[in-house]
């Protein structure tokens, strides 16, 4: 690692150990997903048969499909709401309940999942009893729950980007005759697009990853991928899960790489601007 002279050796060692600790388990997992043996911990030669079995597992596949749709819908909605919330935090002059608003926006960042899950379920049950809606829990209720907590993360990402945005760009657009809405769509939105994309990806992975909240608010007939994985993992190790895990890790790495390149490009562009 070619580190700058300013880094103390102690920090360098910590970095190395830290990265080893973070990545070794995942590497092991990926290696063992190609293990031919039925027994997870004994190496029985190279094979990709678990990948085949994984794709033939219908329960798993339908849960995956559900999770992907859910993640897509949640990410999209939470980017829209998160964008609005970030605008409120950064562009709207102080109004009386702005502190309350700020609190509501950031609290889901740290709120334990079990509390969010339980409280939303009780809300849905209460609503169903009072208004008859939602009659059934499933995709819609999980979506609402996911949007609620993903939105907090998106808001933080976007509001820090908006705060960095040179305000005079927006003022210049207004000065040239654009309305507020026009300024937002022609100037603000295109410039913060990379942050919007990485916020969307973040929300997507958060939703794809959630087990606890979904377990509370899902109905009996709706199952997400983490719920299937959890019930299988609870019973012990299974080679099929290894294969799934390896695929997830690769997919997420690819997405993260993409997000990284996007931010890098954005940063470079901003650098050149300055």
């Amino acid at each position: 690692m070619s580190a700058a002279p300013g880094i103390p050796r102690f920090s360098k060692i910590c970095l190395l150990i830290g990265f080893f600790f973070l990545y070794a388990p995942m590497v092991v997992l990926i290696v063992y997903s190609f293990n031919d043996s039925d027994r997870v911990n004994i190496w029985g030669g190279f094979s990709n048969r678990w990948y085949g079995e994984l794709f033939r597992d219908e329960a798993m596949m339908s849960a995956l499909w559900m999770s992907l749709r859910l993640a897509f819908a949640s990410a999209t909605a939470s980017v829209v709401l998160g964008m609005l919330a970030a605008l409120v935090l950064t562009r709207v002059r102080n109004f009386r309940s702005k502190t309350l608003f700020g609190g509501m926006v950031t609290a889901p960042l740290v709120m334990p999942d079990v509390i969010i899950g339980l409280s939303l379920l009780l809300l849905f049950v209460g609503m169903a009893n009072t208004f008859g809606w939602p009659a059934q829990r499933g995709f819609l209720t999980i979506w609402i729950a996911h949007v609620t907590f993903c939105m907090a993360f998106v808001t933080v990402v976007l509001s820090s980007r908006l705060r960095e945005l040179d305000k005079s760009l927006e003022e210049a657009a207004m000065d040239l005759g654009a309305s507020r809405l026009g300024t937002f769509f022609y100037i603000t939105l295109p410039i913060i697009a990379p942050a919007l994309a990485s916020g969307w990806l973040l929300a997507f992975t958060l939703s794809l990853d959630d087990l606890v909240i979904a377990s509370f608010v899902a109905g009996p007939s709706s199952t997400t991928l983490p719920m299937v994985v959890f019930s299988s993992v609870r019973l012990g190790l299974s080679p099929q899960i290894n294969a799934l895990a390896a695929l997830l890790i690769l997919a997420v790495s690819a997405a993260a790489m993409l997000a990284y390149l996007l931010t890098l490009r954005d940063e470079r562009r901003r650098h050149e601007q300055a």
Partner: peptide, 18 residues
């Protein structure tokens, strides 16, 4: 500002980067 027949050149120029 967007209805005034006045225009301003900003110190940072505020050219739209995109």
């Amino acid at each position: 500002a967007n209805q005034r027949p006045f225009n301003m050149m900003f110190q940072s120029y505020a050219l739209f980067p995109h």
